[in-house]
Measured scan of single mutants.
Amino acid sequence: TIDDAFRAIERAIQAENEGRYREALKHFLDGGEMIVTAAEKEASQKVRNLLLHKGKEVLEWAEHLAEWILE
């Protein structure tokens, strides 16, 4: 659900702030994927587009974090 997705993102932010970057990455990926999944089930085109945009933002952040971890 969207609530689960945002809880995962909150955990990711907390982990990132505490320097637990790999854990943060996992939570960002989980949250982003949950948002995209919820968007695919959404009946309203406007809400679907907003959710897809937010999911994409979260997944892009996860990608940047992963690249930073690997440096």
Rank of each mutant, 00 (worst) to 15 (best):
A62G: 03
S44L: 12
E23F: 01
E42Q: 08
K41L: 09
G32V: 15
H64Y: 07
R7G: 02
H64T: 08
E42N: 08
H27W: 14
E71M: 12
T1R: 12
N49H: 08
H27I: 04
V47R: 08
L59P: 00
A43I: 14
G32E: 03
A5N: 01
I35N: 02
H27A: 06
E57M: 15
N49D: 12
N17F: 11
E33P: 02
V36G: 08
D3S: 10
G55H: 11
D3V: 12
A38D: 01
T1K: 07
L29S: 02
E63M: 12
N17K: 14
L25Y: 07
K54D: 03
F28Y: 14
K46S: 11
I35S: 02
M34S: 05
K46E: 14
L52F: 06
I69N: 01
A62F: 11
L59V: 03
R7E: 06
L29Q: 09
L29M: 08
R20K: 07
T1V: 09
E67V: 07
A66W: 14
E10L: 10
K41H: 09
K41E: 08
T37H: 12
H53N: 13
K54W: 15
A12C: 11
L70F: 05
H27S: 05
H64D: 05
W61S: 01
E60T: 07
D3C: 14
E67H: 12
R11P: 00
I69P: 02
V58D: 00
L50S: 11
A24V: 02
Q45W: 06
Q14G: 04
H53Y: 07
I69E: 02
R7Q: 08
R22M: 14
S44C: 13
Y21H: 05
V47M: 12
I9D: 00
E63N: 10
Q45V: 09
R48P: 01
W61E: 01
E42F: 10
K54E: 03
A39S: 04
Q14D: 05
G32P: 01
T1Y: 08
E42R: 03
H27L: 15
A43V: 13
L50K: 11
E10F: 08
E60N: 06
A43F: 10
E60C: 12
E16I: 15
I35A: 03
T37Q: 14
K54F: 15
L65V: 03
A8R: 10
L25R: 03
E23I: 03
A24C: 12
E63V: 12
L51K: 00
A15Y: 10
G19R: 03
A38R: 04
A43N: 12
K46Y: 09
L65F: 04
S44G: 04
R11G: 03
I69Q: 02
V47K: 08
M34L: 11
E60Q: 10
E67M: 09
T1S: 11
E71V: 09
E18T: 04
I13N: 03
S44V: 04
F6T: 03
I13E: 02
E33R: 15
R48K: 11
I2Q: 01
T37L: 12
N17Q: 15
Q45S: 11
E57D: 10
L70H: 10
E67A: 12
H27C: 09
A24N: 01
I35P: 01
A8K: 10
I2D: 01
D3W: 14
E67G: 11
E71K: 10
V58N: 00
E67N: 13
E63I: 13
H64F: 06
G19T: 04
A39Q: 04
A62I: 08
L51P: 01
A15F: 09
W68L: 14
D3H: 10
R20M: 05
E67F: 08
K56Q: 07
L52K: 06
H64K: 15
D3M: 14
L59F: 12
K46N: 09
F6N: 04
Y21D: 01
W61F: 05
L70S: 13
D4F: 03
L25Q: 01
L25W: 06
A62H: 01
E63H: 13
E18C: 11
A15N: 02
F28C: 05
G31K: 03
L70W: 11
V58T: 01
H53T: 13
I9A: 01
L70T: 12
D4S: 06
V36K: 11
E60D: 09
E16V: 15
S44A: 08
E10W: 12
V58C: 06
K46L: 12
R48E: 05
G55Y: 15
S44Y: 10
E71P: 04
Q45F: 04
V47S: 04
R11Y: 06
I9C: 06
K26D: 05
Y21R: 06
A62T: 03
I13A: 07
V47L: 14
K56P: 04
A43L: 13
W61I: 05
D4M: 09
I13T: 04
E23Q: 04
G31A: 15
G55T: 04
E33K: 14
L59T: 04
K56A: 11
E67L: 08
L29Y: 08
H53W: 12
V58R: 00
E33T: 14
L29N: 03
I69M: 09
